[in-house]
C-alpha cells in the first residue's frame, strides 16, 4: 500500500492526474473536469437520464462503433493500397494470408453497418423523447449532419474493395446525384474525378474515407457530446424541473 501511495503521490503521477483517488465528491468532480475526455460529460447526472429504457444507450453505441471502426480501419490501411491494380488483390491477400485479416475486415464491415443503424435509431429515439426541444435545437441539427457524414463515411468505404459489388453500388449511388439539374453533373464529376468510376474516384474516396470524413466526424461528435452537457444533460432531466407556468414555453 505504501508503494502505491508513493507512486500516486510522486511528482510524475501528480503532473498527469490533477485529482486524488475519486472516492469522494471533490475528486469525483475533479476527475470529470480535469480530464479532456471525461469533461464532455456532466459532473453529475440525473438518475432518470441513465435509465436504459430512456436512451437505450444508442448514442454511446454509435460512438463505440466509431472508435472500433477507427481501430479496425487502421489495421486495414496497413494492408491496402488504393490503386485499381492493387486494391482487389490486397483485399484477397488480407483475407487469405494476413493473420486475423479476414476478422478485421469483417469487424470493419459489420461495424460500419451497425454504426449507420444505431445512428438512425438514435435519431428516432431523440425525436420520440422530444429531446430536440429548446435549448437542444442546435444539437439536433448537429446530429442530422452527423448522420449524413456517417452515411458518407460508409458510402466512400464501400468502393475500396474494388469488386463488382463496390463498383456498381458506387456507380448507381453517384448517378443519383447527377439527376440534380444544375449542379448534378458537377457534383458527380467532383466525387468521381472523371466521367465514370475509376482510379481518380478510388483515390478521392480513399482520402475522404480515411481522413476527411473521420476528422470532421471526430470534431462534430465531440461538439455533439459537449453540447449535451451544456444544454443540461439528457432531456430526461427536464422531467424533474419545476412544472411549467401559464404562458411559458
Amino acid at each position: 500500500m505504501s508503494i502505491l501511495n508513493s507512486i500516486t503521490n510522486s511528482r510524475i503521477w501528480r503532473s498527469f492526474f490533477r485529482h486524488g483517488w475519486p472516492d469522494n465528491p471533490l475528486d469525483r468532480s475533479l476527475i470529470m473536469t480535469t480530464n479532456v475526455f471525461f469533461h464532455l460529460h456532466p459532473v453529475k447526472v440525473n438518475l432518470k437520464s441513465i435509465r436504459a429504457a430512456y436512451s437505450l444507450g444508442l448514442g454511446i453505441l454509435t460512438v463505440a462503433a466509431f472508435i472500433s471502426l477507427a481501430l479496425t480501419g487502421t489495421m486495414l490501411m496497413f494492408n491496402y493500397v488504393p490503386s485499381v491494380e492493387r486494391a482487389f488483390p490486397d483485399i484477397v491477400a488480407l483475407q487469405n494470408s494476413v493473420p486475423f485479416g479476414q476478422l478485421f475486415r469483417n469487424l470493419h464491415r459489420w461495424g460500419a453497418h451497425l454504426m449507420v443503424l444505431t445512428c438512425v435509431l438514435h435519431m428516432a429515439r431523440v425525436f420520440y423523447t422530444g429531446a430536440y426541444k429548446p435549448p437542444r435545437e442546435f444539437n439536433w441539427v448537429v446530429g442530422v449532419v452527423l448522420l449524413i457524414l456517417t452515411l458518407g463515411a460508409s458510402f466512400t468505404g464501400y468502393l475500396l474493395p474494388w469488386d463488382q459489388l463496390a463498383y456498381w453500388a458506387i456507380t448507381v449511388g453517384t448517378s443519383i446525384a447527377s439527376y440534380e439539374p444544375m449542379m448534378g453533373a458537377l457534383i458527380k464529376k467532383i466525387l468521381l474525378g472523371g466521367p465514370e468510376v475509376g482510379q481518380a474516384s478510388l483515390t478521392r474516396f480513399y482520402g475522404l474515407h480515411i481522413m476527411v470524413i473521420p476528422a470532421i466526424l471526430l470534431l462534430l461528435i465531440s461538439l455533439h457530446m459537449w453540447r449535451v452537457r451544456k444544454d443540461g444533460g439528457l432531456a430526461a432531466n427536464d422531467l424533474d424541473a419545476a412544472p411549467l407556468e401559464d404562458g411559458q414555453k
Partner: peptide, 18 residues
C-alpha cells in the same frame, strides 16, 4: 460484433469490371 464476424464473412465478389 466479434461473434458475428466469426460467423459471417464480409462479402467479396469478383474484381470490378466496368
Amino acid at each position: 460484433l466479434v461473434l458475428f464476424s466469426l460467423v459471417k464473412n464480409a462479402p467479396l465478389e469478383d474484381l470490378a469490371n466496368p
